[in-house]
Amino acid sequence: MMTDVLVSHSSDVEKAEFYKKTYLHVAFAILAFIGVETVLLNVVPPEVIGLMFAQKYTWLLVIGVFWLASFLATKWSLAQSKSTQYFGLAFYVLLEAVIFLPLIYIAVANAGTVVILQAATLTIAMFAGISAVAFTSKRDFSFLRNIIVIGGFIALGLIVGGAIFGFNLGLWFSVGMVILASATILYQTSKLKEGYTTNQYVGASLQLFASIMLLFWYILRILMSRRS
């Protein structure tokens, strides 16, 4: 039975069980996202989806809600209560499905499902590669934390500025965000054993899922820009 201690202080068997459960929950979260997104695409009228990207202030409201919910989900991911962790994960999956709705709708309308599959394949491949580096490398990736925080605030400022003043952030911004998301995955993966106890695998999966979705978002945007 897994004890409620930091992963770094647990036995090899408990560590293996923690990582196994964490990545299984990441996979389940991705499958749940696909299911919810499919339902939304078939249920939500195109006119309503159009409002999410046609009005700049509506999109700013969405961004604000997203960041607030991200803060709450992060807090829930660190809870000791398993039910709270599951609630945070389920809530975040639903939130991501809503946020992705207009982007997925435009992608399917303009390029079909092929571009979605390409973006998903690239995202999974990059996530697997970054995770392998984090697990096999003996380097300390703590230095990435400040870079990620500063980069996140800069990105948020540019996104808000673009939404208010109507300028296009362009391809290089998406490339930069892919790099930032990749750095976040590398940092989070390397710090799993220090930041979570053996019973917080649901919360750990939430953090990884959030970074995967950020990576997927901007890879999809890059692929869509090449087809426009």
Rank of each mutant, 00 (worst) to 15 (best):
M1H: 10
M2Y: 01
T3D: 09
L6H: 11
S10A: 15
S11E: 07
F18V: 03
F18I: 10
Y19M: 12
K21M: 12
A29Q: 07
I30E: 06
L31P: 07
A32R: 00
E37Q: 15
E37W: 00
L41V: 06
V43D: 06
P45N: 07
E47W: 00
V48M: 14
I49T: 13
L51K: 14
I63A: 13
G64P: 08
G64C: 11
L68R: 01
S70N: 07
L72W: 10
L72E: 07
A79M: 12
Q80N: 13
S81Q: 12
S83H: 04
T84W: 09
L89P: 09
L89T: 11
F91S: 14
F91P: 01
L95T: 13
L101E: 02
L101K: 03
I106K: 11
I106W: 01
G112N: 06
T113Y: 11
A119T: 01
A120C: 00
L122Q: 05
V133H: 01
F135E: 13
T136Q: 10
S137K: 11
K138G: 15
V149Q: 10
V149A: 12
A155W: 00
G157D: 05
L158K: 10
L158E: 03
L158M: 15
V160M: 08
G161C: 07
G162D: 02
G166N: 08
L169S: 03
G170L: 04
G170F: 02
S174G: 03
V175M: 05
G176M: 05
V178N: 04
I185Y: 04
Y187H: 13
S190Q: 09
L192A: 06
L192H: 06
G195S: 13
Y196Q: 04
Y196E: 07
A204D: 06
S211G: 08
S211W: 00
I212E: 13
M213Q: 06
L214C: 04
F216A: 00
Y218H: 15
Y218A: 00
R227M: 13
S228F: 09
